[in-house]
């Protein structure tokens, strides 16, 4: 399945204020892996899944987009996402990463590393899904 998220949301801009599940406020660039894990533990609806990057390709439809293929969760479900090259994903133990970190840093001022095959990203699922 291919999902097309909205272009580039404002909350990825450096300095954006993010509220964790326990109410604590943090800047987007200061978020740590534990912030997501602890927030998901508190949440009654959401749980964190590990999504491993399996392939990264240039989009056939637009030069500004990439298609990232993930292997999601324990069932290793294959999911492809078409995103802007600068769209950041949060990699476990590493932080924000994108297909084109230079563009991410330039456009959002968000410190970012290069998203690579094998990286394990944080993604969400609904807790009641079986």
């Amino acid at each position: 399945s291919t999902v097309l998220p909205p272009s580039l949301p404002p909350y990825f801009i450096r300095g954006s204020i993010i509220q964790l599940a326990d109410g604590e406020l943090k800047r987007v660039e200061d978020l740590k892996t534990e912030d997501f894990i602890q927030s998901a533990e508190i949440s009654s609806e959401l749980k964190i899944d590990s999504s491993t990057v399996e392939r990264i390709e240039r989009s056939h439809t637009s030069p500004n987009f990439a298609v990232v293929q993930f292997s999601v969760g324990e069932h290793r479900t294959q999911v492809s996402v078409e995103v802007l090259l600068e769209y950041p994903f949060f990699v476990f133990g590493q932080g924000w990463s994108s297909c084109c970190p230079d563009r991410t840093t330039q456009l959002l001022e968000l410190p970012c590393t290069k998203l690579s095959v094998g990286d394990v990203c944080i993604s969400l699922t609904l807790k009641n899904l079986k």
Partner: peptide
């Protein structure tokens, strides 16, 4: 100043059904 919930930063990559 807008405040965004933590989960808006995380993509929903879950399949609708996993069985």
């Amino acid at each position: 100043v807008p405040v965004f919930p933590w989960h808006s930063l995380v993509p929903f990559l879950a399949p609708t059904q996993s069985d």
